[in-house]
């Protein structure tokens, strides 16, 4: 499934660095996201767009991950030639990431 089914996201900019949050709609999915939305996967996903390293920070109390993507904004917001110089739309690219379905949860089913 696409990451969009389990998480929401917001992108921010500082100079030539973008940060993109990935926030579980349901905190129960946080561990699943930690397992599959790794810095390496994100770096690979943004191939061609992001030239530099990708660092991941974990925020278990929020059920959220924060990705910092270096050399990601065409030399920086103020000088970039990109249509979206701030990289605001990168959050939507993040949510296109394909991840496995989360494990089925054991819920009581009344018949």
């Amino acid at each position: 499934m696409k990451l969009r089914m389990l998480a929401h996201s917001r992108a921010g900019d500082k100079g030539n660095t973008s940060n993109i949050s990935v926030i579980a709609y349901d905190p129960k999915d946080y561990e699943h996201l930690c397992h599959y939305v790794t810095a390496a996967r994100v770096k690979d996903h943004f191939q061609g767009l992001v030239q530099g390293d990708v660092i991941r920070y974990e925020l278990p109390k929020l059920g959220a991950l924060n990705f910092v993507l270096f050399d990601a904004l065409g030399g920086g917001v103020t000088r970039s030639l990109a249509l979206d110089a701030h990289g605001k739309s990168l959050s939507s690219a993040m949510l296109e990431l394909e991840i496995p379905d989360p494990p089925a949860r054991h819920e009581t089913i009344s018949v």
Binding site: G12, D13, N19
Partner: peptide
């Protein structure tokens, strides 16, 4: 959800958000 998105907006290391008067730590925010 709106508060979580904005808390992480333009943040790099949530343990160290550099400000003139303090290095703020957002890592334990609920």
């Amino acid at each position: 959800a709106t508060c979580k998105e904005q808390l992480l907006y333009e943040i790099h290391d949530p343990n160290a958000y550099f400000q003139p008067d303090v290095v703020a730590d957002f890592s334990q925010v609920t």
